[in-house]
Design a protein around this nucleic acid. Sequence first.
DNA 1: ATAAAATTGTAGCCAAGGCTACATTCCGCA
DNA 2: TGCGGAATGTAGCCTTGGCTACAATTTTAT
Lengths: 140, 140
Amino acid sequence: MTETDPTQTKGFDRARQAASRALTEDYVEMISDLAAEFGEARITDLAARLGVAHPTATKAVARLKREGLAVSRPYRGVFLTEEGEAMAESVRARHRVVVALLRAVGVPDEVAELDAEGIEHHVSSRTLAAFEAYLTRKTD
Amino acid sequence: MTETDPTQTKGFDRARQAASRALTEDYVEMISDLAAEFGEARITDLAARLGVAHPTATKAVARLKREGLAVSRPYRGVFLTEEGEAMAESVRARHRVVVALLRAVGVPDEVAELDAEGIEHHVSSRTLAAFEAYLTRKTD
DNA sequence: ATAAAATTGTAGCCAAGGCTACATTCCGCA
DNA sequence: TGCGGAATGTAGCCTTGGCTACAATTTTAT
């Protein structure tokens, strides 16, 4: 029998949706990083950094363009829109907080950096706020 | 240009692999929970709890059987193998630690429970150990 | 200036996870 | 006992993210 308990399923649904958003966030963040480093994000560099073949990166960028997060012209670099830049900024900020929190509770630096990459996409705004508050307290 | 920096890509690869493992872990954990509650895990219950249609659960269970984590006979419940039970136990233990840590740093209970569902799959053994150590210190 | 190399685009395939629709089996109850 | 509803299985489709192979463009270097 077992009634469909919405409270129970909620968490799993969230986790699945987050998996999709994670890809977008990774690309947006990486495009922003590359733009900062080289002035523009090239498909090849994106693919290399994300560890995928270049057509995979091309497809992903097409999606970002569709969603209004990036723009690009054939055979040229990729650039973020204002909206994309904003997302990149918040993603980067969240990443920093997650890494800082992991370190604060005793996770070794290299491990913190690696695990944060996966964890950050599942940190809700409320949890993020709690992390920031904790770090502030600790710093005082 | 940009050389393929393995250190950079590592984190992303890990994140992607984790996404795949997460599904397995969710199913294994849920089968274990249902077994504890009802003595066996029914496909319908699994599907309902995980928020998917029943054929999706059927497919997933087929995969678990292929991987030696579960066994079942047609039109009967699903049961974990020893290996599956062991995975369920470690997954559950990790879940508890993650929730406890989130609470310990000030994340509200309901939020901690929800976010843990997504976060736990990205917590490496070293980070888990750090969490446990932190919780132990806090408790003293 | 132009050929070679690098980069990007495109086509088409695969696997995974999800779904609906329909077939089959099981089980409780009249 | 046997029938109807619930549970499970199966078929087939969709989407997504990944890949290889090959075509087109741009860059670089002679």
